[in-house]
Design a protein around this nucleic acid. Structure first.
Length: 300
DNA sequence: TGTCAGCTTCAACTTACCTCA
DNA sequence: CTTGAGGTAAGTTGAAGCTGA
């Protein structure tokens, strides 16, 4: 996605209608080789692993890394806007080292690590993933920037990293994770909406089924049918101009309304102000009008 | 012009660390 | 003090776009 322009730009509002905005970045390595592809990674990592044969999660290694202020490492790499997925302190984690030995990247970081704790390095020198905790100020600025645009171009990334005293890679990772969190939240919101919608439709369906049963029962017993309280009004959707019978019973009206409504259900709900015009009719307006003797027998 | 390799970013998924109840 | 859950930084993987040979 060198220049991707779409994505989930939901920002923090989590609103459904948010639109993406993305820029792009392409970064280049300066001093450290950047194994950007798996195969290349394998090629480059061997020497790193050979040099530091760190078992996973060695506490000594963690101590070593703790000696590094991860917020002070910006000068170690990417001096020219360089960023690389594997160029972080964390890339030195034992697990990763086992899987994908890193090449001669991060020379400065390695150096700083060994500088940071010589005695600890002596004990096998395992490196574990260092958990960076962003400060409040850093998080705030990142959030603010994210609100403006949820992706960064290389220049923005570099500037932000400098401002935050972080490495561009860390800024990049933060934005990636932030987008992921946003998307996850949005998915949850969408899921909840769909769930509620489903529940409502289920309820509507149940009610309509019941109404159909009632109507069928009435049809089978004409006397009951005659005693039934007649419909008094019709309501017309101003948009689609379809007539729905109301007050036949609330559920029947709902059934009529929904059966005459447009398929997408939008017109009658969200279009023009839904002004329903009551149309006074005779109690038997629901009977087939064509069959009634109309004007022919009507007195003038 | 079409093809290919190399590079990069991204999303999605995973891992590991840290905090807190 | 221990432990499990949740949050999150960072790693991994595969896809896709761009560029130069």
């Amino acid at each position: 996605m060198g220049e991707k322009d779409d994505g989930l730009g939901l920002g923090l509002s989590l609103s459904l209608g948010c639109k993406p905005n993305e820029n792009e970045s392409s970064l280049r390595l300066n001093l450290m080789e950047k194994p950007s592809q798996p195969m290349q990674n394998h090629q480059h990592r061997t020497s790193w692993n050979e040099i530091f044969q760190f078992p996973d999660r060695n506490p000594d290694a963690r101590s070593c890394l703790r000696g590094i202020d991860v917020n002070q490492t910006a000068e170690f790499e990417e001096e020219n806007g360089v960023s690389s997925p594997n160029s972080t302190v964390s890339s030195l984690s034992g697990k990763r080292s086992e899987r994908e030995p890193i090449g001669d990247e991060n020379e400065a970081e390695r150096t700083s690590c060994s500088h940071g704790s010589d005695d600890e390095d002596g004990n096998g020198g395992d490196l574990s993933r260092k958990k960076l905790r962003l400060t409040k100020e850093q998080s705030l600025l990142l959030e603010d920037t994210f609100k403006e645009h949820n992706t960064l171009n290389p220049r923005q990334k570099q500037a932000l990293a400098k401002q935050l005293n972080l490495r561009p890679r860390q800024v990049e990772v933060w934005f990636q994770n932030r987008r992921a969190r946003t998307k996850l939240k949005q998915t949850e919101v969408d899921c909840e909406l769909l769930k509620r919608c489903c529940e409502k439709l289920t309820e509507d369906n149940r009610r309509l089924q019941k109404e159909v049963q009632e109507l069928r029962a009435l049809k089978l017993s004409p006397q009951l049918y005659m005693q039934m309280s007649p419909p008094t009004t019709l309501t017309m959707c101003p948009s689609c101009e379809r007539v729905a019978v109301s007050s036949l019973s609330s559920s029947a009206a709902a059934a009529a309304a929904s059966s005459t409504a447009p398929a997408n259900g939008q017109t009658c709900q969200s279009g023009a102000p839904n002004v329903q015009r009551p149309i006074p009719i005779s109690p038997w307006a629901t009977l087939p009008i064509q069959r009634r003797p109309l004007d022919a027998s009507a007195p003038k």
